[in-house]
Structure formats: structure tokens, C-alpha cells
Amino acid sequence: MLKSDRNECKSIQASLSAYIDKELAYWKKIRIQRHLKHCSGCKSQVKSIEHIDNTLRLIEPIKASENFINVVMSKTNTVNYHHKEKQVSKRIVRITSGIHNWVRSHLSVSNPVFMFSFIFGLFMMIGATLYSPQIEKLNLLSIFNVQSIENSQEKLISFEVITEKEPKRTLRTR
């Protein structure tokens, strides 16, 4: 056998499975059919693949049991609940995306009114952040910290002192 023939057989045999499954392009199919006419080696390969397939088909397909459908349908209740839950979350997503789309279509960067209000809002937010009382001053941890309770009482006393001074000042102005 020539080396070119052996290479030809090798490439043909790699496609024989696809040939039997009718998965080859027309021209490839014709090429294989032509080769099989004169090559007994590849022909026996085809027989061998067909034999394997016939052997595999000896395994009979199995049917689902008679109550299969009833079991599936009885289990669907749990799935339905989940489905409704998802519908609610879907609706929320739809509403937020609606708002998002409205904002995108009605407010653009080229709109001077929008730009002015946007920059104004931005400065307001920065200002509010910089001049707002700091978190530590709020004494959020006072419940767990005795010392901080004492501190807050001190501040309360000093506040009372200020309020006592207030009427004196008003008297002086009169």
C-alpha cells in the first residue's frame, strides 16, 4: 500500500462515524463513497461501526413509571411559589428600569436647567457633608460606653449654663 493511500485511509476513517450518522457535507460524503468502493480496509471499518451501533441498540429504551407525571405535578407547588416570588422581584426591576429610562430620555447633559440643578445639588450635598455634625459627636456608642455617658452629661450641664446666661443678655440690651 502506498503512503499516500495510507494517509487517505486515515483521513477517511476519522470521518466514518460522521458518515454513518449522516453528518457530513455532500462533497465529503461523495468522497467517502468513492473511496469505499475500492478500499476493503475502510469498508470493514464501516461494518465495525455499524455493528457497534446495532449492539448498543440492544439496550431497550425504558419508559417512565405510570405515576411519574403525578409525582412531578404534585411537586410543582413548591416551584410555583418560587415563580410568584420571582414575578414580584421582576416587577420591582421593571419599575426601577422605567424610572431610569425616563431620567435618561428627559434629562440630558446638554440641558442647561438640568446641568445647573445637578451642580447645585452636588454642592449642596458636599456642603451638607462637610458642615454636618460628625458621627462621633452623636455618641452612638454611648449605650455600651459608660465614659461616653459621663461626657454627654457634662455637655448637657454646659448647655444648661448657656441657657441660664441668655436672659441676662436680653436684660442688658433693654
Binding site: 413509571s65 411519574f68 411537586k75 410543582t76 416551584v79 421582576k90
Partner: peptide
């Protein structure tokens, strides 16, 4: 059989 039932339940779960 169990896995086939689970297959169909997953179909329903992801139907939307």
C-alpha cells in the same frame, strides 16, 4: 426517575 422529575421541575422553575 428522580433526576428526570428534577429535570422537569427545573424546567418549570426557569420557565420565565
Amino acid at each position: 426517575e428522580d433526576l428526570a422529575q428534577e429535570t422537569f421541575l427545573r424546567v418549570l422553575k426557569n420557565a420565565h
